[in-house]
Design a protein around this nucleic acid. Structure first.
Length: 480
RNA sequence: GCCGAGGUGGCAGAGUGGUGAAUGCGACGGACUGCAGAUCCGUUUCCUGGGGGUUCGAAUCCCUCCCUCGGCUCCA
């Protein structure tokens, strides 16, 4: 099994990845709160952790990947109240949109998307465990709080000093709490809002408890990987550690804490509360899902990533075409390949070496940017060969290998046609032959008419020294 | 104020002690084309925030200053 290294936010260093029970890997990622449209930042964490799961599976690990869905919280309720929606129906609607966007982005590695409200029994059980262990207390109104002072490691993940938090401007004064840093586990019901029965009376879960209740049930009291945006470290992930370790008595909850950097818009974090969001759905429509995926993977996952509304998407489309073009040509040639020449040994070996190097890069804390740099170089190598129809199927498979690696591991090229390319090629060739005859007799009007007509079907012709080549290049839906 | 991550060419973004500082986008020139496009070749005169130090050698290690971003109970 490949040597994998991952940066762990708790230990603050890159560590050799050793799951508790290899080859099995339990992986949990904080998902979305389904109260509004997802933005580009949400797409980033989804793609980054999709690649992690894909890569681990490629290397022989058996990954169970859970991504939760916060389908009920203060924001869902608040937004539903504004619009007159039923909160849970609103959530269901936005979750469907999220899944559609995930499908478009080729995010397929998530095994299970648990909803918070499907885990009420587990949530109640965990709060009772915390009560029994002395970490929780009941307030007069029926809410239950976590008493942070009872959990000395609190602050270890974020490096926060709990005492220093006290004067923090945003720590609200709440008379129900024994201490300002305490956080709510169970919120007493408010009339008109969804609520569930519990030993403490009707209410609903606090923000942090759903994750640890879900992971406790699905992944156990201790598991391997927990991922999420870097903005969740405090207080959310800190609270998760306090809850899970307090309730189970086992430490550590998680072996490897992974946090992705945030997408910034003109130098500032993209967030709904700042109002500077770019909709994920719109970006997919404008740039295409695969170029967007490339955009995410073209930076290291822990770095901040700047989003420039016009430039970023245009660049993503142009660079993606540079990769997709040669791969699509190899695939098309492969579909009709029979006998032909082989590659020089050095080139075939180079293909293997590129794949090996890309695996190594990804295994070193997901250096996707550098793996892509190699893939761009390989694209150039393939382009240098020119016409591909003279190569054998074996040779073409060698040429395809680095692209196929990216297809499987990075999840790119979901839009590159495969098996039916041969039939399409035969059909397009008929039109190309007719146009060639027109050009030969100097009838450029007819030649351009055929080319324009094919262009309307998004098939683009290119005349070169070795004849006419065609590519299928879908334009974006906005037509820009 | 406290905790954390950063400052690299026109832009995006790698590289964290040693061959010419990747890769992509953009721009310019050339080849190819009936024109176009794609592709290839070349150019973009050369960019590591300022200062100091360690070293034969620093973008990379140390010190210091400046600046940016994130967190400090809404957050991917």
């Amino acid at each position: 099994m490949r040597r994998v290294r991952l940066y762990d936010s708790l230990h603050r260093e890159v560590r050799l990845f050793q799951p508790r029970f290899p080859p099995r890997v339990g992986m949990f990622v904080c998902g979305v709160t389904t109260y509004d449209d997802a933005h580009i930042g949400h797409g980033r964490f989804a793609v980054v952790f999709d690649v992690l799961a894909r890569a681990l599976r490629r290397w022989g690990y058996r990954v169970f990947y859970v991504q939760n869905v916060t389908n009920l919280d203060d924001k869902v309720i608040a937004r539903a109240g504004e619009t007159g929606d039923d909160p849970l129906e609103r959530s269901a609607r936005y979750f469907r949109a999220w899944r559609e966007q995930m499908d478009a982005l080729n995010v397929r590695s998530v095994d299970h998307y648990p909803f918070a409200t499907d885990y009420l029994p587990e949530i109640v059980d965990q709060i009772r465990d915390l009560e029994r262990a002395g970490f929780a207390y009941r307030a007069e109104d029926g809410s239950v709080y976590y008493e942070v002072a009872r959990f000395p490691p609190y602050g270890q993940l974020s490096g926060q000093n709990v005492q220093a938090l006290r004067p923090g401007a945003r720590v609200e004064l709440d008379r129900r709490k024994r201490s300002p840093e305490d956080f709510v586990l169970w919120k007493a019901a408010t009339p008109g809002e969804p609520s569930w029965e519990s030993p403490w009376g009707p209410g609903r879960p606090g923000w942090h408890i759903e994750d640890t209740a879900i992971t406790g049930r699905l992944l156990g009291p201790q598991y391997d990987i927990h991922g999420g945006g870097i903005d969740l470290i405090f207080p959310h992930h800190e609270a998760e550690i306090a809850q899970a370790e307090g309730a189970s008595g086992k430490s550590p909850l998680v072996e490897y804490w992974l946090h992705n950097g945030l997408v910034q818009m003109n130098g500032e974090k993209m967030s709904k509360s700042l109002g500077n969001v770019a909709s994920l759905e719109a970006a997919i429509a404008t740039a295409g899902a695969m170029p967007l995926r490339l955009y995410y993977l073209n930076a290291h996952y822990r770095s901040p990533l700047d989003f420039q509304p016009e430039a970023s998407l245009r660049e993503a489309r142009e660079s993606y075409e540079r990769l997709r073009g040669p791969f699509a040509r190899v695939t098309a040639s492969l579909a009709s390949a029979s006998a032909g020449s082989e590659l020089p040994d050095a080139l075939a070996q180079h293909a293997n070496s590129v794949v090996e190097q890309m695996d190594d890069l990804l295994a070193d804390d997901l250096r996707s940017r550098e793996a892509l740099a190699l893939l761009f170089q390989w694209a150039r190598t393939v382009n240098e060969l020119g016409e591909l129809s003279g190569y054998s199927a074996l040779a073409l498979e060698s040429l395809a290998a680095p692209f196929r690696w990216a297809e499987v591991t990075l999840g790119l090229f979901a839009d590159v046609a495969g098996a039916d390319a041969g039939a399409l090629d035969a059909a397009v060739r008929v039109a190309i032959d007719a146009r060639s005859r027109a050009r030969a007799r100097g009838d450029y009007g007819e030649a351009d008419r055929i080319r324009d007509e094919l262009a309307r079907a998004e098939i683009h012709l290119e005349d070169g020294p070795s004849g006419t080549r065609w590519t299928y290049r879908p334009s974006s839906s906005d037509g820009s």
